[in-house]
């Protein structure tokens, strides 16, 4: 099902394409086409864009950035971003971290690894966070933890449901224990929001690992996942090194977690907005901008 009205082109589309092109097989000369990392077949970039960045041949979900996700899930022109300006400092004076932050800002066109704000999904008012993989692999330092905590606190104050899209390599080691503490801090914010009877829905995307898996990613009332997303506490390489054996195919993929009972459903991008909308309706989340006047 295609609904063109669902997305608006990201402002930084050109840059985004440029980045993607660099990462693709250099043997493919044209930015008109991209090869699918799963089935290796070529697709027109325009076809991919019109298909939620999902391979039309095999259904592989290409990695996309947070702004693209927002455009896919939020009703047009309803997103109001909060705390966009927050950026990290190198409080522990960790060697090389300043440079990494500067590179990540350039590379991602974002100030940090998560975007937070409010918006509407099928007219239902929600607060949400969307993590950004191109900013240091969505790793969680103090700013990421703080932004997620702030949006949970905002949602609690305004009695809004929370929607969270996760993608992360885990806690950001350059911030030492202050990064680890964000797992406790965000979990506290989730707990308070939950205790007030409010809905928290997570969508786990590829890859969600480490300290994010072991905190707010797994704390949703409802946990959805994108097809084939890697969802892990310890990454596959760490496990292979620890136990010195190869891991079975499909291990730690969304389908495996569904089978083991750790996610509620696997939802392809084409029906993601519809699914979230239905879940919001089923929880009696009000429509329109009248309530609380916060949007």
């Amino acid at each position: 099902m295609l609904n063109k009205g669902l997305f608006k082109k990201p402002k930084n589309e050109l840059e985004a394409q440029h980045r993607i092109k660099r990462k693709t097989d250099p043997a493919i000369p044209s930015e008109l086409c991209r090869s699918c990392p799963s089935c290796k077949q070529l697709s027109f970039t325009s076809d991919l864009e019109n298909n939620f960045h999902v391979c039309p041949k095999c259904g592989h979900h290409f990695r996309i950035n947070a702004r693209q996700r927002l455009n896919m899930i939020i009703d047009q022109d309803t997103f109001v971003e909060q705390y966009h300006e927050l950026s990290s400092t190198n409080r522990l004076e960790f060697p090389g971290y300043d440079e990494k932050l500067a590179q990540a800002t350039l590379f991602s066109h974002e100030n940090e690894g998560v975007i937070i704000g409010t918006g509407k999904i099928g007219s239902h008012k929600v607060a949400l966070f969307v993590m950004e993989a191109t900013f240091m692999m969505g790793s969680m330092g103090q700013v990421v933890g703080e932004k997620i905590t702030l949006i949970f606190e905002y949602a609690l104050k305004h009695r809004l449901p929370m929607i969270g899209y996760t993608v992360s390599g885990g806690a950001r080691m350059q911030e030492g224990m202050l990064a680890l503490m964000q797992m406790a801090k965000t979990s506290g914010a989730v707990k308070r929001h939950s205790d007030a009877g409010l809905l928290y829905l997570t969508v786990l995307t590829d890859p969600t690992t480490g300290g994010v898996t072991a905190s707010f990613a797994m704390e949703g009332d409802i946990i959805l996942a994108e097809p084939e997303a890697l969802i892990a506490f310890a990454g596959p390489r760490v496990i292979e090194q620890t136990i010195r054996q190869r891991l079975p195919k499909g291990f730690q993929r969304a389908e495996f977690l569904l089978e083991k009972g750790f996610v509620d459903a696997i939802v392809p991008r084409s029906i993601q907005k519809e699914t979230v909308k239905r879940l919001l309706t089923l929880h009696g989340i009000p429509k329109g901008g009248d309530q609380n006047g916060s949007i």
């Binding site: 072991a214 905190s215 990613a217 797994m218 969802i231 506490f233 009972g261």
Partner: peptide, 8 residues
């Protein structure tokens, strides 16, 4: 569910 157990 190591991640889930810790998160919980």
């Amino acid at each position: 569910g190591q991640g889930h157990a810790i998160a919980n």
